[in-house]
Each structure stands twice: as structure tokens, then as C-alpha cells.
């Protein structure tokens, strides 16, 4: 009976890691199809990925879109959170609701709405429009995270700073932002990973220059290939590195 929970835990982890494990293992496949039996290992497919200009360009595009849209979403979200938390505004509940609203709607619908408007206005889709879409979906998240961490402690510190003669801009730059740094970083990293990974909006709102998930998607159309495994494994590796870095930076600091 005592072993039962551990057995269940082992089974759960087996289920959770089955696809990732398969993905990574067969990225080293020395053959044309990533299915058993495993032959290899070889790094040929990684070399093929790194030599693929389209993929490398898409990776760079993804990075630019992720960083840009996350920075914008964080900035807008922070300002709105500060305004709503520190100033008594009429209809603040309604405004909070409006800012959070995009979170409750499928990405597909957000993307479709933007696509229709862009079509009507005659604006062509590009990495810019994809970034715009990502900022729309990440703004609620950044706002919610920052708003939730604006506690009484910060408020008192801000008051103290104002009491000592700081104007509002200096209060924000010297007190509020440093005190909220963990929340802002968390919001930024979370937005980045979401944007980096987002498919449907990027698919609808880009055409010639595409982001990595869209490029991988078109790779999939040519069937199963260890090259796709290699790209997937690389993306996984990079994401995990970012997540661990975020964990160490954000939570390591908080723990101290």
C-alpha cells in the first residue's frame, strides 16, 4: 500500500515524458524516419537544422516578436496596474474587466478578428502584425500579474518616498519598479514563452516572414522526419534553459 502513490507518480511521469523522450531520442536517429527501431546516434539532423536558413530565420523572427511584444505588453500592463492600484478612478472594475477580457477568448478568435480588420484596412500581414496580436493576448497576463503583486507594502514605500520629496516619476522609477522587479520579470518571461510558442495568431497574421512554430508547421506537412525532432528538441532545450534561468533569477531572489 505504501508503494502505491510512488507507483502512480512513476506512471504519471512516464506518461508526461513519453512524447518528449521519444522526440529527443529519435532526433538522434540515423535514418530517414523517427520511429523504432532506434539506430544511431547521429548529430546529422541537428546539423541539417542549423544549416536550414528558413528555420534559422524563423527562429530569429520568433525571438524578435517574443521580446518586442512582451516588452510592450509588460510596459502597458505595468502602467495600467499602477494607475488602477494607486489612483481612485471611476469604473475601475469595468476597466479591469476590459483589460482582462482577451484572456477569456480563444487565440483563434483574437487572430481572426485582427485578420478581418487588417484585411478591411488593406494592411498586409507581417511580423509586425503577429507581434501586435501577441501583445494583445499578453497584455491581460502582464496586467494581472503586476496588479496582483501591488501590495500595501509597496504602497507604503511609495508614500515614504513621496513624503521624502520624490515626484511621481521618481517614485515609479526608484521605488515602484525595483520593488515590483520580480513580478515584472515573471510577467515578461511568461509572455515571452507564450509568444515564442504561439501558433494560430502567428499563422493567421504572417505571410512571408514567419515565426518558428509556423515554420515547423510547414515542415510537418512533409511527413515525419528526424529533422523535425531535432528542431523540437532544440526549442525544448532553449525554453527549458529560459525557464530555469527565470526560476533562478526571479525565485532565487525572492527566497533570499
Amino acid at each position: 500500500m505504501r508503494a502505491l502513490p510512488w507507483l502512480a507518480l512513476a506512471l504519471a511521469f512516464a506518461f508526461i515524458y513519453l512524447p518528449v523522450g521519444t522526440l529527443v531520442l529519435f532526433s538522434f536517429q540515423d535514418g530517414r524516419v523517427p520511429v523504432p527501431p532506434f539506430t544511431g546516434p547521429t548529430l546529422d539532423w541537428y546539423a541539417a537544422v542549423l544549416a536550414d536558413d528558413d528555420l534559422m530565420e524563423a527562429l530569429l523572427n520568433s525571438l524578435v516578436v517574443a521580446v518586442g511584444s512582451s516588452a510592450l505588453a509588460c510596459a502597458l500592463g505595468f502602467l495600467a496596474a499602477y494607475g488602477l492600484a494607486r489612483h481612485a478612478l471611476p469604473a475601475s472594475g469595468l476597466m479591469r474587466g476590459l483589460l482582462i477580457a482577451p484572456m477569456t477568448v480563444s487565440y483563434l478568435i483574437v487572430g481572426l478578428g485582427l485578420l478581418i480588420v487588417l484585411n478591411r484596412l488593406g494592411v498586409g500581414v507581417s511580423l509586425w502584425t503577429a507581434g501586435l496580436g501577441h501583445a494583445v493576448i499578453n497584455l491581460p497576463l502582464c496586467f494581472a500579474i503586476v496588479f496582483a503583486s501591488m501590495g500595501a507594502q509597496q504602497h507604503n514605500a511609495e508614500r515614504a518616498a513621496r513624503d521624502l520629496g520624490a515626484d511621481e516619476v521618481r517614485v515609479i522609477v526608484l521605488v515602484t519598479v525595483p520593488m515590483l522587479a520580480p513580478a515584472l520579470l515573471a510577467a515578461f518571461f511568461l509572455s515571452m514563452t507564450l509568444s515564442w510558442d504561439e501558433f494560430i495568431i502567428a499563422f493567421l497574421l504572417t505571410r512571408f516572414d514567419v515565426t518558428l512554430p509556423v515554420e515547423i508547421w510547414s515542415l510537418l506537412r512533409s511527413g515525419l522526419s528526424p529533422k523535425t525532432n531535432a528542431v523540437g528538441s532544440l526549442v525544448f532545450l532553449v525554453s527549458v534553459a529560459v525557464v530555469l534561468a527565470a526560476e533562478l533569477i526571479v525565485f532565487g531572489r525572492r527566497r533570499r
Binding site: 518528449v20 504561439e198 512554430p213 523535425t228 523540437g232 526549442v235 525557464v243
Partner: peptide, 15 residues
């Protein structure tokens, strides 16, 4: 495994 790319995760299940 959350951080495997969304597209790639489905592909991995296909494998």
C-alpha cells in the same frame, strides 16, 4: 514538457 513547442508536442504524440 509544457515548454516543448506546442506544435512539436502534438507532433511528438504522433510519433
Amino acid at each position: 514538457p509544457f515548454w516543448t513547442s506546442y506544435v512539436v508536442r502534438s507532433y511528438a504524440w504522433l510519433l
